[in-house]
C-alpha cells in the first residue's frame, strides 16, 4: 500500500497516511483535489466501490472533515480519504458523476452539516428532516437536548433526587453552613 501512498502524494499531495488495520488505511488531501483523487482511485487504482461518504464536525479546528471510504475489492483493501473544508464556507466539488449514489450522500451532508456541493442533483431538497428550521442538526454546536427541552414538554411528575444531596439533607443538614 505504500506505493499507493507515494503515488497519491505525488499526484494529489496526499499526506498523513495511516494503516488503521491490515485492510483499512486513511489519508488526507486538500479539498480542492478531493474529486480528482477519488476519480483516479476509482478509475485507475481499483478503488471502484464507494462504501460511504460522510463528514465529521471538527469545530475546534474550524473545519468539517469529509470522509470518503472507497474499497478495492480485488486487493481487499479500503481507503478512507479525508479532506478538511472550512467550516465558515463549506463548499466541495460534487462526486455525483463518479458514483450513482453520490448525490444522496451530498444531499444528506447539505442537510445535516450545511456543506454545499454545487451541481449535485436535488442537493437543496429536504432529505430526512421535513420542515426543519433549526441549524444543520449534525453540527456540534447544535445542542439537541436544549432544542428538545425548548420544543417539547416533559412528562409531568418526573422528578429525581441525587443520593448524596438527599443524604446530606436527611443526615447532616447542618453541613455546608
Amino acid at each position: 500500500m505504500n506505493e499507493l501512498a507515494k503515488e497519491l502524494a505525488a499526484r494529489y499531495g496526499a499526506r498523513d497516511w495511516h494503516d488503521r488495520r491490515g485492510d483499512l488505511s486513511s489519508t488526507v488531501v486538500d479539498p480542492i483535489r478531493l474529486h480528482d483523487t477519488l476519480a483516479w482511485l476509482k478509475d485507475s487504482a481499483g478503488y471502484a466501490h464507494l462504501s460511504f461518504a460522510t463528514a465529521v464536525d471538527n469545530i475546534e479546528r474550524g473545519v468539517f472533515t469529509l470522509t470518503y471510504t472507497v474499497r478495492n475489492h480485488e486487493q481487499g483493501h479500503s481507503l478512507m480519504v479525508h479532506a478538511d473544508v472550512d467550516r465558515a464556507n463549506p463548499v466541495v466539488d460534487s462526486i455525483h458523476l463518479l458514483w450513482g449514489q453520490g448525490w444522496t450522500y451530498q444531499r444528506e451532508m447539505k442537510e445535516w452539516f450545511g456543506i454545499d456541493f454545487p451541481g449535485s442533483p436535488r442537493v437543496d431538497e429536504e432529505f430526512v428532516l421535513e420542515g426543519w428550521e433549526g441549524p444543520p442538526m449534525m453540527r456540534r454546536d447544535f445542542d439537541s437536548l436544549a432544542y428538545s427541552d425548548a420544543t417539547y414538554e416533559g412528562r409531568p411528575g418526573r422528578v429525581t433526587h441525587d443520593p448524596a444531596t438527599r443524604m446530606q439533607e436527611r443526615l447532616y443538614p447542618e453541613a455546608g453552613k
Partner: peptide
C-alpha cells in the same frame, strides 16, 4: 427512564440514600 424517589418508611441512613 429512571428517577430516584423517596419512599415511605425508608429514610436515609449510612450506606443507603433511602431513595
Amino acid at each position: 427512564a429512571i428517577d430516584l424517589v423517596p419512599v415511605e418508611g425508608r429514610d436515609a441512613k449510612e450506606g443507603d440514600s433511602g431513595l
